[in-house]
């Protein structure tokens, strides 16, 4: 068991029968799809969220439940502060990877403290970028990084070696007429994020880097 799961189990033991904590932990690990030996960005908040749901029935009373949730949140914040890794790569190979990418990004946004509306917006942005990779370049990577310095936020970097977008100017000015979709994807991405950078040329693949800052909430 990893450090975070061991610590979470210790917290649970204070609020419920110790016989129950292990099965609840195991079930939460399974349900959240987190690998306890390899906790990645976004995993912590997902695990804690599932744990909170599953221990609700077993904690003695609602006051204890509130305390238990608070302890788990503190644990999460500490784990976050101590983690040196602050980015994760989701490789887009098949359609379902799009869902993985946006769910991971959404959880990372939660960890760093974005309000729910921004989390959904960023998840949508990731979905657009990942789908473009899947549709037009077949494979590529979505790199998600938390920016923790002076200006906190999240960066989404989408890279592929596909055909590139020679008509990128048209796309971004809204003049491009898409044959495959609404032709809205990249416009949405640009609108939603605070910073937008793209480099793409025929045959050179596409790199799109976007950022959303905590202090620029809309």
């Amino acid at each position: 068991m990893s450090e975070i799961t061991a610590k979470a189990a210790t917290i649970l033991k204070q609020y419920m029968s110790p016989i129950l904590t292990d099965p609840i932990m195991e079930a939460a690990v399974l349900r959240s799809g987190v690998d306890p030996d390899n906790i990645r960005m976004g995993d912590g908040s997902r695990l804690v969220r599932v744990l909170k749901q599953s221990c609700k029935l077993f904690v003695r009373n609602s006051r204890d439940y509130a305390k238990c949730c608070k302890d788990l949140d503190v644990l999460l914040t500490e784990a976050m502060a101590g983690s040196s890794v602050d980015s994760t790569v989701v490789t887009i190979k098949e359609e379902r990877d799009i869902v993985v990418a946006r769910a991971t990004g959404r959880d990372m946004c939660e960890e760093i403290g974005f309000p729910i509306s921004v989390r959904i917006g960023v998840a949508t942005v990731i979905s657009e970028l990942a789908r473009n990779i899947h549709q037009y370049a077949k494979t590529g990577n979505i790199v998600l990084s938390l920016m923790k310095g002076e200006r906190g936020g999240i960066e989404v970097f989408a890279v592929d070696d596909g055909p590139g977008i020679p008509f990128i100017e048209e796309v971004l000015s809204g003049r491009y007429k898409s044959k495959t979709g609404l032709g809205q994807g990249l416009l949405v991405v640009k609108k939603m994020m605070d910073e937008f950078e793209v480099s793409s040329a025929l045959g050179e693949g596409t790199k799109i880097r976007v950022r959303k800052y905590l202090d620029a909430r809309r």
């Binding site: 946006r102 959904i120 949508t124 979905s127 657009e128 789908r131 979709g181 609404l182 994807g185 949405v188």
Partner: peptide, 10 residues
């Protein structure tokens, strides 16, 4: 739905 992106909307 977890998100509604342009693909799902379409």
């Amino acid at each position: 739905m977890d998100v509604m992106d342009s693909y799902i909307t379409k």
